[in-house]
Computed example of a mutant assay.
Amino acid sequence: MQVPAFYFDGKTSRRHLVTLHVEDGVASISGDVERACPIMQLRVSERLHRAARKVTYPDGAYLEIQDNAAFAALLHATSHRDSLVVRMQQNWRATLAAAAVLIAVLVLSYAYLLPAAADLVAKSLPPSVEQRIGAGALEFLDNHILSPTQLPAAQRQAIKTRFRALTAEVEGVPHYEIVFRKSRIGPNALALPSGQIVLTDEIVKLLDDDNAVMGVLAHELGHVHRRHLMRRLIQSSAIGAAATALFGDISAVIANIPTVLLDMKYSRDVEREADDYAIALFKANGISRQKLAYVFEKLGEKEAASADIPPYLSSHPASAERVERILNAQ
């Protein structure tokens, strides 16, 4: 069986008209060029619907087949089989099945593998990394969102002293620092990876209750303790890095870190972990959990009375179920 083809030497663009045939495991061409090569050393391109198939020699020379049907018959006669991947590409059922499996793997990885990996990485990071990220995030917030606090120094010191007393006898309390700021976006509190808890003037004034403010701080300390924000940052960066691997421009990932920190949305499970930490801290100090629930009740009232959702609620969503869980915790 002979198959017409064009031969290219891989060095020039000149083509040579040849005829390919196979005998005793050796592929030979005749015509403008004569050459023989064992078929085991040749690489055959995958089958496409209309494109000409190519046969590549070890030195880079190649054949461009002119009769795909005759070439297919020749391959069949030599017992050549396309790879499993190529065969699957030619089968629409296999392609759909592979796509479904890929989607399932991505979903499961996002839901389970990525959070577990982020938790492991966050726990393995040296404190210096968290300090640098926290310092950079606070600088960004100070330049764009926050301004110097206007709370009286005595009130700020009283809040710090009170919370220090609450955490003094509790084991495993992470390093933290309470940072006061005035916010341009309303009541808010934010725990940075460095352990800095940003408490805004607006949320202190809105709550107008020392124990409720302690509840906000205890909740945010729970986020610090479980490295929630660092874990979410790692997850978001991992997703961004994966997108970058596909689409390029790594600078976009780096530039978006401050925005990710600011617009962090916590999952229900993460919020429960932080709530549980605050509940345990209140219980250890004999403070009614009603004051912790009051934080979200008060913010919920503000949400109901205003068209705008309080910033603290946007990242720490309140609900009747959540308040009930806090009040009924053992």
Rank of each mutant, 00 (worst) to 15 (best):
M214T: 01
A36Q: 05
A242D: 07
V204D: 01
R53M: 13
F8N: 10
F282V: 11
L125V: 14
A165K: 12
R272F: 13
A252G: 01
Q66Y: 04
I39V: 15
G222R: 05
V22R: 14
I257S: 06
R164T: 14
S45E: 03
G60R: 10
A118K: 04
Q131H: 13
P127L: 09
D142R: 12
R93Q: 15
M1Y: 02
E130A: 15
G248T: 02
E171M: 00
P311Y: 08
R156V: 00
R162P: 02
P310R: 09
L96Q: 11
P152G: 14
L141P: 04
V26R: 02
Y110P: 00
S45V: 01
L138V: 03
T200M: 03
H175T: 08
D142H: 10
R87N: 05
L151M: 06
G195W: 14
I145K: 04
D32P: 07
T244L: 08
P317D: 11
V44Q: 04
L108V: 15
D276L: 09
A118M: 10
I257A: 04
R181E: 00
A98Q: 05
V204M: 12
W92S: 15
Y62W: 13
I29F: 11
K54A: 04
L327A: 06
E297D: 11
V260P: 01
P115R: 08
D308P: 05
S194W: 10
V173S: 02
D32A: 15
G60Y: 06
H225C: 10
L233A: 03
N256F: 03
V216D: 06
A318G: 11
T167A: 15
A99E: 04
V22Q: 07
H16F: 15
L206W: 01
H228L: 13
G136H: 06
H228P: 07
R231Q: 12
A100C: 11
E169N: 10
A189S: 07
A168M: 00
F140C: 00
V216W: 09
V224S: 03
P38A: 12
N91T: 14
P38K: 04
